[in-house]
Amino acid sequence: MTQHVRGVIAPGKGEQVRIETIVVPDPGPGEAVVQVRACGVCHTDLHYREGGINDEFPFLLGHEAAGVVESVGEGVTEVAPGDFVILNWRAVCGQCRACLRGRPWYCFNTHNATQKMTLTDGTELSPALGIGAFAEKTLVAAGQCTKVDPAASPAAAGLLGCGVMAGLGAAINTGAVGRGDSVAVIGCGGVGGAAIAGSRLAGASKIIAVDVDDRKLEMARTLGATHTVNGKTADTVKAIQELTGGHGADVVIDAVGRPETYRQAFYARDLAGTVVLVGVPTPEMKLELPLLDVFGRGGALKSSWYGDCLPSRDFPMLIDLYLQGRLDLDAFVSETIGLDDVEEAFAKMHRGEVLRSVVTL
């Protein structure tokens, strides 16, 4: 039997979001219906609304979510009704060349629910990142559900579903930050803040936060930054070099994703250091670097997809650290809101007033 629930859709490019009745089908083979408890408001949702991802409107927005499995379809063994889960948008297939080589975090064939959620008139919805969790319930592939300890706050846990995991993973997984390393993070929003927290968790000795907003720099200190640089008033590359004995940082994480910030990251790293790009560029952006500098400085230039995470491995481990008091996920929750407040949350995010607004249901 289908269910009717409230959800937030983006009806067309640049149009304000609105609440609609969403039709959620019973789960088919390999699928699950999840009662959403909390969902963070991520920049990616705004990109969907603005047509920056694709033009498959209308979108059912929301993807950074935690909830409880209500029902599962045929053949589902990973989760069962009643399980508290974090939703992820990279449900690995286990069969592609990346998975078969033992690198499932690079899975090239991730999957989503086969059935479509719709409006009451039958219009098919495109769920954001295959999830669509600005809704009371959503239909996903069972592999998109990762069971974690139910003692965790849904508002905090759900953030691992996208932005916070991306930042933590950029530091821990992609950048391989280790004990005693120096790290610089350019851009201190939700993803950059998580990269700072991840660097502290990994044992970095010096963590330099770079942003043009003093409010974000102050928050960065609470997340673990040992030094801050305001890129509006200081030369970012020179400042990072001065704070690292003139050498540059061992790992520099670009959480902005613009050509100018990537160049700063490239030149602010030590010889043989690592640059990690986790901020998402737009299609028209181009980068030009002297090839001799790329060769001569050595090291590694890496892109971080979803923090190179493996949800089944990383989500439970990070939730355990959260419950032990070693990872402050609550610090990323700036406010909790209702479904009706998503449009205003986009405005607050654009103004840099929040790390994360979180819809709670």
Rank of each mutant, 00 (worst) to 15 (best):
M1I: 11
I9G: 01
A10W: 05
P11E: 13
P11K: 12
K13G: 12
G14Q: 11
E15G: 06
I19M: 14
P29F: 09
E31W: 01
E31P: 00
E31I: 03
A32S: 11
V34L: 02
V36H: 03
V36Q: 01
D55V: 09
D55W: 07
L61R: 11
L61T: 13
G62W: 02
E64C: 07
A66H: 06
A66R: 03
V68L: 04
V72S: 02
G73E: 00
V79D: 08
V85R: 01
V85I: 12
L87G: 05
W89G: 00
Q95H: 15
R103H: 14
W105G: 04
W105A: 14
Y106H: 15
L125P: 03
S126Q: 13
S126L: 05
T138G: 00
A141V: 07
T146Q: 10
P150Y: 06
A152K: 02
P154R: 07
P154Y: 11
A156P: 03
L160S: 10
C162M: 09
C162R: 00
G163K: 03
A166Q: 05
A184I: 03
G189H: 01
I196W: 02
S199W: 04
A204R: 05
V212N: 06
D214M: 08
E218Y: 02
T222M: 08
T226L: 09
V229Q: 02
V229E: 01
N230L: 07
I240V: 14
T261C: 07
Y262D: 01
Q264K: 06
L271H: 12
V276A: 03
G279I: 05
P283T: 12
E284Q: 14
L287S: 06
G298T: 11
A300H: 05
L301R: 05
L301K: 04
S303H: 03
S303T: 13
S304H: 01
G307P: 04
D308H: 11
S312R: 15
F315S: 03
P316E: 03
L323S: 05
R326N: 13
L327T: 06
S334N: 07
E335D: 14
E335H: 06
A345S: 15
A347R: 15
S357F: 08
T360M: 08
